[in-house]
Simulated scan of single mutants.
Amino acid sequence: MSRNYEAERAVLMDDVKQVLKDAEALYQAAVDDGTKEGKALKEKLKAQLGRAQKQFSELEGSVVERTRQAAAQTDDLVHSKPYHAMGIAALVGLVLGALLSRR
């Protein structure tokens, strides 16, 4: 799962970087002149931005789904073994309290 997430994140970041480069080029073209090159860059930027937004929404959807699954599994575990969950919570609280009291 995390490998797929990392690959999707890398692709998304590459697209965002490319969009920023194209936005800079579009800005320079718009400042210099309003020719066909500026229009072509604007269309390319629009297409890449749309693709990046689509990939981001898909990535966000998969993250939300994985979070829901993890929450459901945690909820099932807590309901099936409540004393284990309370013991773990108490242990974590004890460790955090000890670490914070040292400072």
Rank of each mutant, 00 (worst) to 15 (best):
G61C: 03
D32W: 02
M13H: 11
Q18T: 09
Y83G: 00
Q28H: 13
V95M: 06
D32F: 07
L77E: 12
E43I: 15
R66G: 04
R102K: 09
Q28E: 15
K46M: 11
Q53G: 01
L45N: 01
A90K: 08
A90N: 10
A29H: 07
S62C: 07
V95L: 14
E8A: 15
E8W: 05
L100N: 05
E58F: 03
A10K: 14
A40L: 14
A25K: 07
S57G: 01
L100S: 07
D75A: 14
V64Q: 15
A98N: 12
K46Q: 15
V19S: 00
Y5N: 02
D32S: 14
V31R: 15
L12N: 00
L99P: 00
N4R: 13
V11H: 09
H84Q: 08
A89N: 12
R66T: 04
G38T: 07
G38E: 15
S80P: 00
A23C: 04
V11W: 01
L12C: 02
L77H: 06
R102A: 10
H79G: 08
Q28S: 13
L96F: 03
N4I: 11
G93Y: 05
E65I: 03
L100Q: 09
L91H: 09
S80L: 11
V64S: 15
L49C: 11
V63H: 05
L91C: 06
H84F: 13
M1V: 09
L12Q: 02
A89Y: 04
V78L: 12
G34D: 14
L20F: 04
A23F: 01
G97S: 04
K42E: 10
L91G: 03
G87N: 09
A52V: 03
L20N: 12
V31M: 11
S2K: 10
E60Y: 05
S62W: 10
T67V: 07
A30M: 11
L45P: 00
A7Q: 08
S57L: 06
D14C: 05
D75Y: 06
A29R: 02
Q28Y: 11
L59M: 09
M86F: 10
R103W: 07
K44Q: 13
R3D: 15
K42R: 10
V92W: 04
Q18W: 03
E6K: 13
R51Y: 03
K39S: 12
A29L: 07
S101G: 04
K46H: 14
R66Q: 14
V16N: 00
K36S: 11
K42F: 02
K54W: 08
E24R: 12
R68S: 04
I88C: 04
Q18V: 04
K39L: 11
E58I: 03
F56E: 10
G87W: 01
G34T: 08
E6H: 07
G97H: 03
Q53C: 02
V95Y: 06
V64I: 14
A70T: 07
A30C: 13
K39V: 12
